[in-house]
Structure formats: C-alpha cells, structure tokens
C-alpha cells in the first residue's frame, strides 16, 4: 500500500491527518470496547441468574402440571387450559446501552388471579391453580430471559464489531499509515538528498566550468602576453 502513495508533501500531510484521526478513533474505540465489556459482564451475571431462575421455574411448572395431570386427569387440565382465549400482551420498546440498542420487553396480563383464569373455581382444585400459577411465573421468566439474553447477544455482537475495528486500526490501518508516512518521509528525504546532491553537482559543474573558463581566460591572457614579444604567426607568413 505504502508504495502506491505518491511521495509528496501533500500526501504526507494527508497521511499525518489520517494517522491523527485513526489514533484518536482507536483510543475512543478501545474505551468503548472496555465499557461494553464491563456492561456485558453485568448483563452476563444477570443473564446467568435469569437462566437459573428460568430453569427452576420450568422444573417447578413441569412438576406442578404433572401432579395436576396425575390427580385431576389430563382431560381436566386441558379443559381448564381451554377455558381462556385471551393471550398475554407483550410489547417491546428499546433502550440504549453505550450506543447499542437493546429491547425492553414489557408484558401484561401474564399473572392472573383466580377470577381471570377462565375456569370456574367451584369445579376445580388447588392443583390446577398451582399449575396455572407456576406456568404464569415461567412465562414471566421467559420474557425476562428473552430481554436479557437478546441484550446480551446484541452487546456481544457490538463488542465483536468494536474489537474488530480496534484490531483493524491497531494492526492494519495504523501500521499501514505509519509505513506510508515513513515511506513518504524517506522518499522526501531521498528526494531532498538527491536535490542537494544534484545542486551540489550543478554547483560543482558550474564551478568547474567557471574554473575552466577562468583557466581559459588565463591561458588566453598568457598567450596574449607572449604574442607581444614575437610577431604573430599570421603577420610573419604575410611577410613572406
């Protein structure tokens, strides 16, 4: 890459500008990456707790429904479940964590009281109530887990992207820019040296020429002096 740049002072200045920008960007991205990692660690802890609770709630709900199916019969449990058509309402909003947009899931009508579950109270038992309650808790945990785990995945993706950008700046772009800068600087220095050398050579040549000229003039003068003592060749020949 470095060799593709024309080694001019203008390009050197442009590269220096890019280096400055990239170094600043690198610093900022490093800070962002570190911040994201810290936020991610918090979310990870929360996600682990939520996962644990979800797993416990699932086991509890399964146990409760198994007991209800065993004691009341599958038909009765299915019947009680069929007595409600209304579904819980789930809405998603978003919030911003260090520039990462993560979902915020709000749910309503998940936990219900006895009168809202659809089935008649007189003909059912506490086993069905407890199974229904356990499943409502499970659904709440699933919604919370969905929110936390989606945030975690988005944060992770952002950390990866930021890390790639930091690495790209640190190991690719900046080294190339430094190389380019060095190349241009070296080239300019070389050009400068060449110019100096050239000027020196010109100067030497000029001096040589001047010297030769001076010598020639001197020689001419000397000849002239010698010619004053003896007749010039032309005049001697003309005399013959």
């Amino acid at each position: 890459m470095a060799k593709d740049v024309k080694p001019t002072r203008k390009n050197l200045m442009a590269i220096e500008d890019r280096i400055e920008l990239s170094e600043r960007g690198h610093g900022t991205l490093e800070k962002k990456r570190d911040g994201l990692i810290m936020e991610f660690m918090d979310i990870l802890d929360k996600a682990q707790d939520v996962r644990g609770e979800l797993s416990e709630d699932y086991d509890e709900a399964q146990k409760k429904i198994n007991m209800a199916r065993a004691m009341e019969g599958d038909v009765a449990v299915r019947g009680a479940a069929a007595a409600l058509q209304e579904h819980p309402e789930i809405t998603t909003e978003s919030k911003n964590i260090m520039g990462v947009v993560v979902p915020q899931i709000e749910s309503s009508r998940v936990s219900k009281d006895l009168g809202q579950r659809g089935y008649g109270i007189m003909g059912t038992s506490a086993r069905i109530d407890e199974a229904a309650e356990a499943y409502e808790d499970l659904l709440e945990s699933i919604i919370l887990a969905a929110e936390v785990e989606t945030a975690m995945k988005k944060m992770l993706r952002e950390i990866e992207t930021t890390k790639r950008r930091v690495n790209a700046l640190e190991f690719k772009l900046l080294p190339e820019l430094y190389e380019g800068q060095e190349y241009i600087e070296q080239s300019l220095e070389e050009q400068e040296r060449e110019e100096t050398f050239r000027l020196k050579k010109i100067k030497e040549k000029k001096e040589q020429e001047e010297k030769e000229e001076a010598e020639a003039e001197e020689a001419e003068e000397a000849e002239d002096l010698e010619g004053g003592q003896a007749p010039p060749v032309g005049s001697a020949a003309g005399g013959n």
Partner: peptide, 16 residues
Amino acid sequence: TGVLVPLENALDREFY
C-alpha cells in the same frame, strides 16, 4: 366479561 367463569360457576353451583 368474555370469560367462561360465570358459566362454569353457575353449573357447579347448580350441582351442589
């Protein structure tokens, strides 16, 4: 209300 509770309770109450 749209829920079956009143109908189911009415039937159970009638039985008891």
